[in-house]
């Protein structure tokens, strides 16, 4: 495992993660970035997302029916409806996310007034659907929750929902900061948690854990394998 490739062992999928050869030097006995896959030699399972057939049960039928009625482009925008563990997930075509959010907020029989959370997940499964952006909406009127999910490729983009839910402002910035998802139309899409000159997006699954030089301005700390060795 060399530092040049800059890719942690186990980040490449499909094959079981390689266990790095026993280290000979380094401050903590780890060379390169070690096995950071977290799978410890186990083969990763890739769970398939399967759409749920109707009826969905609970309030889920009411929500989907109301959305279908209020939104003419329902068939084009909704890729899949999944009901799992008593939670409703609507998989949305990324370009349509703002349209759907607008109707989810405004339609009288939906009334999802609060956008509780916006975050990302790096599913690492296929290039076109690698990053999922998750929106958790809450209806205070009906006491319901629904999850919108949109899949984009790495560095992909989708419309912002900040003009519909201003609370998404910082949360979209965090998703951009951590995953590199670009929200087009966002008023100020800059890093929020990491320093503004940081390179890379730390929550990506193939972002190296350790073994990289410290990135802060002016700081010069070599990667672990070039530091003093205590033996």
């Amino acid at each position: 495992m060399s530092l040049e490739s800059n890719e942690p062992v186990g980040a490449n999928l499909g094959a079981p993660a390689q266990t790095p050869a026993s280290p000979e030097k380094g401050m903590f006995g780890i060379q390169g970035s070690g096995d950071v896959s977290g799978f410890g030699g186990l083969v990763r399972r890739k769970p398939e997302v399967v759409g749920t057939p109707k009826p969905y049960g609970s309030y889920f039928d009411e929500v989907t029916d109301a959305l279908e009625e209020a939104y003419p482009g329902f068939a084009d925008a909704i890729e899949k409806v999944v009901v799992d563990r008593d939670e409703l997930t609507l998989h949305i075509v990324p370009a349509k996310i703002a349209e759907v959010a607008q109707i989810m907020r405004d339609d009288e029989s939906l009334r999802f007034e609060l956008c509780s959370s916006v975050s990302g997940v790096d599913y690492l499964d296929s290039d076109a659907r690698r990053l999922h952006v998750i929106y958790q909406l809450t209806s205070m009127t009906y006491r319901r929750r629904v999850r919108l999910e949109a899949a984009v490729p790495a560095g992909g983009s989708l419309p912002t929902v900040t003009h519909i839910y201003p609370t998404a402002d910082w949360q979209e910035r965090e998703a951009y900061d951590m995953f590199g998802v670009v929200f087009t139309g966002h008023p100020n899409l800059t890093r929020i948690l990491m320093p503004d000159d940081w390179e890379g997006h730390p929550q990506l699954k193939d972002y190296p854990l350790g073994g990289v030089p410290v990135e802060y301005k002016g700081a010069e700390i070599p990667p672990p394998d070039q530091r003093r060795i205590y033996q």
Binding site: L42, R44, R45, P47, V121, D122, I134, W170, Q171, E174
Partner: peptide, 17 residues
């Protein structure tokens, strides 16, 4: 993802929002 570790955990913290 079916494993022994969380695949992803996101905390929507009220202080942040």
């Amino acid at each position: 993802d079916g494993g022994t570790h969380p695949y992803r955990v996101h905390m929507r913290d009220p202080s942040f929002v």
